Amino acid sequence: MCILESEVAEGGRYVGMTSDLKRRLAEHNSGNPANASKFLPWRIVTHMAFPDQAKAASFEVISIRFRARFRQQTLLVTAAGLRKIPRFSKKR
């Protein structure tokens, strides 16, 4: 599990699983996949090891969902002209 971030383009972030972090970073910095090329160069933000692929995949899904939720909240705050993100409670 790794998180890569563009060094120059705001919002350029990749969350995904890999068994070879150096290879994944090299692939992104060579423009593979194609949509990675508009965010060159990439850097490693963090990486984590999990005991098995299923646990890594679960964490990847949670990370992507959290990022999408945070982005929505940031847009709402900006549109409302607020200075900080209010706490949003989840209905259960």
Rank of each mutant, 00 (worst) to 15 (best):
H28V: 08
S30N: 15
S63M: 14
K90F: 07
A79P: 08
K22D: 09
K90G: 09
V8N: 07
K55N: 13
A80R: 13
I44Q: 05
S58T: 08
F39L: 01
T74R: 13
A54Q: 15
F70I: 13
E60G: 08
S30W: 08
G11E: 10
A26Y: 05
D20T: 02
P51R: 11
G11C: 01
A26H: 12
T18P: 00
N29T: 13
L25A: 01
L25T: 09
G12K: 07
H47C: 03
Q72M: 15
S58R: 08
K55W: 01
A79I: 02
K91S: 14
S89A: 07
F88C: 14
Q53M: 13
A68G: 14
D52I: 05
F59P: 01
L25H: 06
A68D: 14
E10Y: 04
P41C: 03
P33G: 01
M17V: 04
A56H: 11
E10D: 07
M48H: 05
S58L: 07
E10K: 08
Q53D: 09
Q53T: 11
F39N: 12
L75N: 14
F50C: 08
T78R: 14
T46R: 08
R43K: 08
T18C: 13
E60Y: 11
R92M: 08
A9I: 04
G31Q: 06
F50A: 02
K91Q: 12
L76S: 06
S63I: 09
E60T: 06
I64P: 06
P41Q: 04
D52E: 03
A57T: 07
I3S: 02
F39D: 00
Q73D: 03
I62M: 03
I64S: 12
V45L: 10
H47E: 10
V15D: 06
K84Y: 03
L75G: 14
S6P: 10
M17F: 03
T46W: 07
M1R: 04
Q53K: 12
S6E: 03
S19E: 07
Q73G: 11
A54R: 09
E7A: 12
M1H: 02
P41N: 01
S19A: 04
A79Y: 05
K91G: 10
G11D: 01
E5A: 14
K22A: 13
E60K: 02
N29L: 02
P86Q: 04
E10N: 12
F39V: 03
G11A: 00
G11K: 00
A9K: 11
A56L: 10
R69H: 08
F50S: 01
A49Y: 04
I44N: 00
E7G: 13
V8W: 05
F39A: 10
